[in-house]
């Protein structure tokens, strides 16, 4: 079981309130991603749940039990750190065994769990190496292995992929998702990368300045961002946000149109512009269209085989049905 509830949880460092009173429900077996720009308080929130920081107010419930002042070791949670935090003087086997040793798990049970974790994580051949002799991806797996063998009620991940290169990151992302499918254990995952959030999460929590901006499934956030911040943060490339007369036309202070919701044509359309940079990726083509008379450069996604290039004049037409409208406060107009 791994149901975690935050009730009015607050954190202050001295006089600075990094997390104003915050409420959140995490259901058993859910994959929850905390996402937000650096400094938004997502890591602090994770550390509060872990017990590595004291709360300044409010309650943390784990499976209905008040765990606010329970020491980290007693919360039944496992954490994977950004730096992996492996013990450099211990072999991989000893690293993975450490939490079980601390918990007094019998030796044969330890061996069994190490074997199965090593097999699942492709570490069988590396069990007798020291962390210093492993690659970044392998270290990451050891850290995950150390978490798995504890059989925790929830896993906490603190930006676990940020030290890996791009290709490895995609691979590890899949592995973690598969792990979640297999274990069906609650996972709380912190990242600043919205792609990770979109691809992995059952539920995304978007944070800014310690405040929750929106909670929802990836597609809910994509389809109906509650405000300008979420609109700009979720989706890649970024949503085009346009204000001024072009927005007023739709009774909004700002309108948002995702690049994939703009049709591009060489002959006719609503907004006329000129292609600045064009990126032909094969499957897709991205145009950065300038001189449209709108405030900023408009990003457009088109098909892979479109024959338009830098300097060409184009016409853009937004898909009105997929347009997002925001009021003067930046909130969504329903």
């Amino acid at each position: 079981m791994g149901r975690i509830t935050l009730e009015n949880v607050t954190k202050r460092f001295g006089d600075v309130e990094v997390i104003p009173p915050l409420n959140l429900d995490i259901n058993d077996g859910e994959f929850v991603v905390f996402v937000g720009p650096s400094g938004c308080g997502k890591s602090t929130l994770l550390r509060l749940i872990a017990g590595l920081e004291d709360t300044s107010g409010g309650r943390i419930l784990i499976d209905g039990q008040d765990a606010t002042s329970t020491p980290p070791a007693k919360r039944g949670l496992a954490m994977v750190f950004q730096s992996y935090a492996l013990y450099p003087h211990m072999s991989v086997r000893k690293n993975i065994a450490f939490p079980m040793r601390m918990a007094g798990v019998p030796q044969d049970e330890q061996d069994r769990r190490i074997e199965s974790a090593a097999k699942a994580l492709n570490l069988t051949n590396y069990l007798d190496r020291k962390p210093g002799q492993l690659s970044g991806g392998q270290r990451q797996r050891v850290a995950i292995g150390r978490a798995i063998v504890r059989e925790p009620s929830a896993f906490l991940f603190d930006e676990p992929l940020s030290n890996l290169d791009a290709a490895l990151r995609v691979g590890m992302r899949l592995e973690i998702s598969e792990l979640h499918n297999r274990l069906e254990t609650t996972m709380i995952y912190v990242t600043h990368d919205q792609v990770e959030a979109m691809t992995m999460a059952d539920k995304i929590v978007v944070l800014q300045a310690g405040r929750i901006e929106q909670v929802g499934s990836p597609m809910e956030l994509y389809r109906a961002p509650r405000n300008l911040f979420v609109a700009g943060f979720i989706g890649s490339p970024r949503m085009n946000l346009i204000d001024g007369p072009a927005a007023a036309e739709y009774d909004a202070t700002t309108i948002g149109v995702r690049p994939e919701h703009i049709a591009v044509s060489g002959t006719e359309g609503k907004w006329k512009g000129r292609i600045g940079v064009s990126e032909h990726l094969g499957s897709d083509t991205f145009f950065y269209v300038e001189d449209t008379g709108l405030a900023e450069t408009i990003t457009v996604r088109a098909g892979g085989d479109i024959d338009l290039h830098h300097g060409d004049t184009v016409w853009l037409s937004p898909d009105i049905a997929q347009m997002h409208r925001f009021d003067a406060n930046g909130d969504r107009i329903a």
Partner: peptide
């Protein structure tokens, strides 16, 4: 972080 990891791992 290593000391925190140990704490999470149940070390006194």
């Amino acid at each position: 972080e290593i000391l925190e990891a140990a704490r999470m791992d149940g070390a006194t």
